[in-house]
Design a protein around this nucleic acid. Structure first.
Length: 575
DNA sequence: GCCGTTTTCGGCCCGACTGTTTTCAGTCG
């Protein structure tokens, strides 16, 4: 049983306990445990089998949870989980996906009306039976019906890049308000999460009503979800929820910190404040009733002797431990990048020619690029066989003679075949400057098979890196069932790199996997996988993800000049 | 159920808004 599966069971136990109105701190303990397991850099099962190691060495897992996880790994099920499932149909949990329905209402609906599915809930609302329940009313019934429309259609997270589009145009729209003194995005968007459920905007204004009216007038606004004196929520066409908060200037830093989150980061921060006799809320830091700080984020953190944290790190993972040790990493920045080692041309499925990609790379100030078109197995993309590939490389050789300031590398994205092995012969690969291997077919294969294919590819002496190592497409396709821990170990053993693909729908390795790869000592390559000139601008999405993984300039291969990348590959293979 | 420079018990972050309430519970972030 892998970490994701263990975490899913723990999360479901938390949900079920919540419906049973269990001690909320007990519920939180299961959620924290789930999160800890999900973010472990190695399989829990491995730790359990290793002498001298215990799961309790990780924050959030005590002896009780450690025992339950051990039982889960050994037997495939957890007695508490099974008991709860016998009491509450698992489908009741889906009721909580409807906005406005939390654990209490879901429990009441199930207990009083015997409702356990969304269809039953819809029917009961339409029949007017829900409004008769204590604590429910006509409004609630309407909210539930409206919320169910949503849950079925648009209630999914958007990619960061999609939200960025809305955020930029909405902020431009709002800035027309003369009373706005500050306007900043917060929430998971500011933290750079690869997908974002809603957009939080923070405003300092002498006239909150004017700002809210202006938001209501934004063309994409579809529904007004709520509006108070300081807070307003709307839903945009396409489903994105926007939450606007207006705060006084002396609270701006505290509010920005608070609304940026994450929730867990804030819990840790406030708990630290409490232990010092301070209280932190969105209005500031207080000792008793006395305002201590709050105008800037730096000020808020400084009251706890903490440094300002880059938003990407605020996930209550390592950042507090790093700060306590005075070792907060200096995160990689877009300007650190020197080259791009994964892109396509019209020779396969790209939309721009070799010459156009080269010109675009020069425009963007890149020092080197690798042209890595697909190999022949990817027939849909008109993949290259040895002959066509060598012809492209000859063209690159000619091109390089006339280029100044940019080196074009002879590369290929060689397919990892379904039955294992690579799509091109070793003698061909040996002529390349840069080889990335990736799999496009047989993505549904069982874990052992997929893992074996990737691990074997890493063992090939000509392969430099594995591209998009999990194959996930955010909101569209789950990652392959691959044992990433085994991939990390193989990459380390053979001195290879792993790619962080910057395409906003891919972004794999994800943030947690980046951090895990780093802990295994594996250098990361951040690539655009550009299929056109505009694709070269997607690097910033990959950088954001890398920052979330805590990566520095030194952790990323292509912040170095090409000569150093080559040397790094050589040196690592030698050891 | 977890955790510990208040250390094995007694805490566990904090507030806005809504709807159903007549003083507050539930939900959300």
């Amino acid at each position: 049983m892998n970490n994701a599966q263990i975490a899913a069971v723990l999360d479901e136990v938390a949900d079920l306990l919540e419906i049973q109105a269990a001690n909320p701190f007990r519920v939180r303990a299961y959620r924290n445990g789930a999160r800890t397991v999900r973010e472990l850099s190695e399989p829990a099962a491995t730790i359990l089998c290793t002498a001298g190691r215990k799961l309790t060495e990780f924050k959030g897992i005590g002896s009780d949870l450690a025992d339950k996880i051990a039982a889960l790994c050994q037997t495939g099920s957890m007695p508490l989980h099974q008991e709860l499932l016998a009491q509450i149909p698992v489908s009741v949990l889906t009721l909580m996906r409807v906005p406005g329905v939390g654990p209490k209402k879901a429990a009441a609906l199930n207990k009083e009306l015997g409702i356990s599915t969304l269809d039953e809930l819809r029917a009961a609302c339409q029949a007017g039976r829900v409004r008769k329940l204590k604590g429910f009313g006509e409004k609630t019934e309407q909210t539930i019906l409206a919320g169910m429309e949503l849950a079925g259609s648009v209630n999914q997270r958007l990619t960061w890049a999609e939200v960025d589009g809305f955020a930029q145009s909405l902020m431009t729209h709002l800035r027309a308000c003369p009373s706005i003194a500050e306007l900043e995005p917060a929430g998971s968007y500011r933290r750079g999460r690869d997908s974002v459920a809603d957009l939080d905007l923070l405003v300092v204004s002498s006239n909150p009503a004017e700002v809210m009216d202006r938001l209501a007038a934004f063309a994409a606004v579809e529904t007004l979800l709520g509006r108070g004196d300081t807070k307003m929520s709307v839903r945009l066409a396409g489903g994105l929820q926007v939450d606007l908060r207006v705060v006084p200037a002396e609270s701006f830093g505290a509010a920005w910190q608070y609304f940026t989150g994450s929730k867990d980061h804030n819990v840790e921060l406030r708990s630290r404040a409490k232990s010092r006799g301070l209280k932190i809320n969105e209005y500031g830091v207080f000792r008793g009733d006395q305002y201590v700080a709050g105008r800037t984020e730096e000020e808020v953190y400084a009251t706890l002797d903490l440094p300002w944290f880059p938003p990407e790190l605020r996930e209550a993972r390592q950042e507090f431990a790093w700060a306590d040790a005075g070792q907060l990493p200096k995160l990689i920045e877009t300007g650190d990048m020197q080259g791009d080692l994964h892109m396509h041309t019209t020779a396969t499925d790209g939309r721009a020619s070799l010459a156009e990609m080269v010109a675009a790379a020069q425009d963007r100030g890149l020092k080197y690029i690798a042209i890595t078109d697909h190999s022949k197995r990817v027939s849909m993309a008109n993949g290259l066989d040895a002959t066509r590939l060598r012809a492209q490389w000859a063209e690159i050789d000619r091109l390089n003679k006339s280029l100044r300031g940019l080196v074009v590398l002879k590369g290929v994205e060689v397919d990892i075949l379904e039955k294992g092995g690579l799509d091109l012969e070793d003698d061909v690969l040996a002529e390349a400057d840069w080889v990335v291997a990736s799999l496009h077919y047989g993505q549904q294969q069982p874990r052992e098979q997929i893992t074996r294919r990737i691990v074997d590819a890493l063992a090939n002496p000509h392969v430099c890196a594995i591209a998009h190592p999990t194959g996930r497409l955010i909101n569209r396709r789950k990652p392959y069932d691959v044992d990433l821990d085994a991939v990390f170990r193989a990459a380390r053993q053979h001195g290879k790199f792993l790619e962080l693909n910057s395409h906003p729908q891919r972004l794999d390795l994800d943030d947690v996997a980046c951090a895990a790869a780093k802990s295994h000592g594996i250098p990361i390559v951040i690539s655009t996988d550009a299929h056109g000139v505009e694709g070269l601008d997607k690097l910033r999405f990959g950088i954001l993800q890398a920052r979330r993984g805590g990566l520095t300039k030194a952790d990323v291969v292509n912040t170095r000049p090409w000569a150093q990348v080559k040397k790094l590959l050589r040196d690592r293979r030698a050891t």
